[in-house]
Structures are given as C-alpha cells and as structure tokens.
C-alpha cells in the first residue's frame, strides 16, 4: 500500500508538471495579447509597454515559465492582470464554492440516479424501466443553459421560491446558501443523474444474473437483502468510478451553470479569465483543477478497496 501510494504521488507530480507546461504554453498560444485585452480603450503604446513590463510579458517565454513555476511551487500564483488581486486568494475563495456546488450536484445525482437505476434493473424491460430510461435520456439531452433559465423563470420569477442567482457563504447564512444552491445543483446534477442511473442499471442487470446472486437467493435470502446488500454493493463500484471522474470534471465543468446562476466559482473564473487573457488566473485555476482531478481519482481508488475487499491495492495494482 505504501509503495503504491508513493508511486501514485510521484506519477501525480509528473502529471502536474506536464499540465503546467501545457497550460503555460497553451495560454500563450491563444490569439490575443493580454496587454491589449487589459488596456481596454486606452491602448497607447506606452501603456501597453508598461503593462507588458509589469507582468513580465516582454520576457522570453522560458524565463516567464521559470519565474511562474518557482513562485507557484511556493503557492504564489501571482496577481490577476485584470484586477490586481492575488491569484491564490482568488482561487481559495472560489474553490469552496465550486466544491460545494459539485458535491451538491453529485448528491442530487446519487440520490436520484441510484434508486432509479436499481429500480430500472430490478424491473427490467417493464414500463418502469422504459420510463426511467426515457427520463434519463431527457436529462442527458437537455442543455443546462435552457434548463437553468426555465427553472429561474418558473421558480424564481413566476413562483418566487428560490433566488435567481448569487451566492452567500454557508457560514454567513446557511439557509440562504442552501436556497441559492438548490437550482444550480439540480441543473448541474441533471445530466449526471442520467449517467449514474444508466451505469447503475447496467451494473445491476449484470449483477442480478451473477452466480453469487443465485446462490444468495437459493440460501433463502429475501429479495430486498439480495438486491440491497449483494447486487447493489457490487454495482456501486462501477458507479463510484463514474462519480469520481464526474466530480473532477464538475469542478471545471460547471461553467454554464455558474454563468446562469451567477455563482462566482471556478468555472466562471476560468471563462472570464480566458476572455480577459488573464494568464496568471488561467494558469492557477487550471493547475488547481488538475490537482483536484488527480486527488479525486486517487481517493476513488482507495474507495474501491473499501467497497470490495477482493480488490487490493498493491504495488502492482493500477
């Protein structure tokens, strides 16, 4: 286990370094000069030169990379070209928001998707199965942008139950926070619910025809126990993989939802930063997202072994 963890940690560092190189080169390959983007309507040559000098944009790219990397390793991602605010402070303020939104949307997906998947598998080829699959397909197909606006119209304007947008910290106002998170979490979780439901159904269908289930039934166990304790537990391994991958993707993929509900999270941060060519913010945000993705996958691997003791993490495991 220890060797495995060390290997994974080493591999993660390599991935992070490669990500840093790709991101750094990638943002500079974008058309659009950050000095011009920042200069706004005051684009006189002196201003542009001063901006480039201030942010080191006039240095050779390798020098820029080295300067950035050495500071980033110390947790200093520089300051936003646009606002002058410390990037680390920005990331630290955005991360909890997107994590909260992602976790809540996963919760929505798990709470809705797993029971629906189990039910569809148990009632395979009945109208319940078909209806669940239909709803899942609908959930997968529906654009977040459209669903978000519809929910705002219905539940914030027409029946004003939830606020249309914004974010307050749960530490300041727990109820207000929850009220503002319900609609975005639902929107973000909708497509994911469909994925979870379909995965759960497939895994359950396979499990329910396995030998050990037949054995369990022949031992006289009740159907509920067979489904819940045996079939479901094994099927959850597949779903856990999906949840893990999806959680990582959600951190960076909440872009549209955050735009619609004006949630100042990571997705919105990255999109705005790209449009404004705010290099330090883009770099910092993507590195942190990459790190989050790696971490989540690492945790998923560990959860595997807890769900199924037959899977042992060893030095040879992958």
């Amino acid at each position: 286990m220890g060797r495995y963890l060390l290997r994974r940690a080493g591999a993660s560092l390599v991935v992070l370094f490669l990500a840093a190189v790709v991101v750094f080169a990638g943002v500079r390959a974008l058309p659009g000069d950050p000095a011009l983007a920042l200069a706004g309507e005051e684009r006189d040559p002196e201003s542009l030169a001063a901006i480039r000098a201030k942010y080191g944009l006039d240095e050779p790219i390798l020098v820029q990379f080295w300067n950035w990397l050495t500071l980033a390793l110390q947790g200093d991602f520089g300051e936003s070209i646009r606002t002058g605010i410390d990037v680390t402070d920005i990331l630290l303020s955005k991360l909890p928001i997107t994590i909260e939104l992602s976790v809540l949307s996963v919760l929505v997906a798990v709470v809705l998707g797993i029971p629906a998947g189990v039910l569809a598998a148990v009632k395979k080829d009945t109208w319940i199965d078909h209806t669940s699959s239909g709803i899942a397909l609908f959930g997968l197909s529906i654009p977040n942008f459209w669903l978000g606006l519809m929910l705002i119209l219905g539940l914030a304007i027409y029946f004003p139950i939830f606020p249309a947008s914004g974010y307050v910290s749960p530490l300041e106002d727990p109820i207000g926070n929850l009220m503002r998170m319900v609609l975005p979490a639902f929107v973000l979780g909708t497509a994911f619910t469909a994925v979870v439901m379909r995965q759960m159904r497939s895994a359950m269908v396979e499990s329910l025809t396995a030998d050990y289930i037949r054995t369990a039934r022949s031992k006289g166990l009740g159907e509920f126990t067979v489904v819940a304790s045996h079939a479901m537990r094994n099927s959850l391994i597949t779903v856990t993989t999906v949840v893990g991958l999806q959680l990582g993707a959600l951190i960076s993929g909440a872009v549209v939802t955050e735009q619609i509900f004006v949630i100042p999270g990571f997705g919105k941060l990255i999109v705005d930063a790209v449009f404004q060519r705010d290099f330090p913010v883009i770099q910092g945000a993507i590195i942190v997202t990459t790190a989050g993705y790696i971490l989540v996958n690492f945790v998923v691997d560990i959860v595997y072994s807890l769900l199924n003791p037959r899977i042992r993490i060893t030095g040879a495991a992958t």
Partner: peptide, 13 residues
C-alpha cells in the same frame, strides 16, 4: 449574460 441580467431584474435579485 444579458438574458441572466434580465431574469435577475424580473426576479427582484
């Protein structure tokens, strides 16, 4: 987003 500004105005946010 202009549509979102408009919907927020209408919702009173």
């Amino acid at each position: 987003e202009p549509n979102v500004r408009l919907s927020n105005l209408r919702s009173g946010d």
